[in-house]
């Protein structure tokens, strides 16, 4: 092992000074999303080439929804909770929604595909990008066309001597149709989904505590300048994709013949 010279130490200090401590936790900027490897059963029709969008780019009211559960009875640290959550993310989702984790796992910049359903039973193919991931939290950011435009942050921390697991969604409905859908049962479906996710996570640690929900409307105004987001609506595009499946099948048959 070689000893560090004062020059080496100065260089190391300079490097640390230039590179913020959070640098490794954030995704790098990319104009559009790129999916690396599509898992069997997943559909990549509404993610590749789309831009990631935050809560400011959406159409509807701005909501902050917080779901949390105390893991008081479990001997588990926040770091262990987040490690487990990242590794088993898809297993904690309620039935009916499929999360195709990226091959590299929940790491910054990776993109995951999602197959879910909207109110009325409409099938939806969409995805999320891992925006941020450290040892005690990670955040997902939605693409254009997703039902909402925003971030979901999963975190764990100590509160009054107990470890708490939390999911916090900061979102606007992406377009007028989604805003209508959220008001007509979509919010309720979403709340139920995250409550169930936290229940499943808690159950993994042997805890069966109720999930606390806090819903806060941060900005009640609609952003009418963003009504054109409907062009990317993943629900409409997924439905069209399903309807035109026989045509694609026939076209492929003709090509094979």
């Amino acid at each position: 092992m070689t000893e560090q010279t004062p020059q080496d130490e100065t260089r190391e200090e300079e490097k640390q000074r230039r590179e913020p401590r959070d640098a490794a936790y954030w995704a790098h900027y990319a104009e559009t999303l790129k999916v690396t490897g599509v898992a069997e059963g997943a559909t990549n029709i509404n993610v590749e080439g789309r831009r990631a969008v935050g809560p400011l780019q959406g159409f509807g009211k701005l909501w902050q929804k917080t779901y949390r559960v105390s893991l008081e009875d479990a001997e588990v640290t926040p770091v262990e909770v987040i490690k487990t959550w990242k590794e088993n993310y898809k297993d904690f989702w309620p039935e009916g929604n499929l999360f195709y984790a990226p091959l590299a796992g929940i790491t910054p910049g990776e993109v995951a595909l999602i197959s879910g359903s909207l109110p009325g039973g409409v099938k939806l193919s969409t995805g999320v990008m891992v925006l941020y991931a450290d040892d005690e939290s990670f955040s997902l950011m939605t693409p254009e066309g997703h039902p909402f435009s925003g971030w979901i942050t999963f975190s764990s921390f100590e509160e009054e001597g107990a470890t708490v697991a939390q999911a916090q969604v900061l979102m606007r409905a992406n377009d007028p149709l989604y805003e209508l859908g959220l008001r007509m049962g979509g919010h309720k479906m979403e709340d139920e989904m995250w409550r169930k996710t936290l229940e499943n996570l808690a159950a993994h640690f042997g805890v069966h505590e109720p999930v606390e929900t806090n819903l806060l409307c941060v900005d009640p105004r609609l952003q009418w300048s963003h009504y054109r987001n409907i062009w990317h609506n993943a629900g409409i595009r997924s439905a069209l994709y399903s309807i035109t499946a026989p045509l694609r099948w026939r076209r492929n048959r003709v090509r094979q013949d």
């Binding site: 400011l56 701005l62 990670f138 942050t153 900005d219």
Partner: peptide, 15 residues
């Protein structure tokens, strides 16, 4: 240092 929760706080200020 800024994490994703911190960025969400800034969105709150913007609102």
């Amino acid at each position: 240092y800024i994490n994703s929760t911190g960025i969400a706080l800034i969105v709150g200020l913007l609102a």
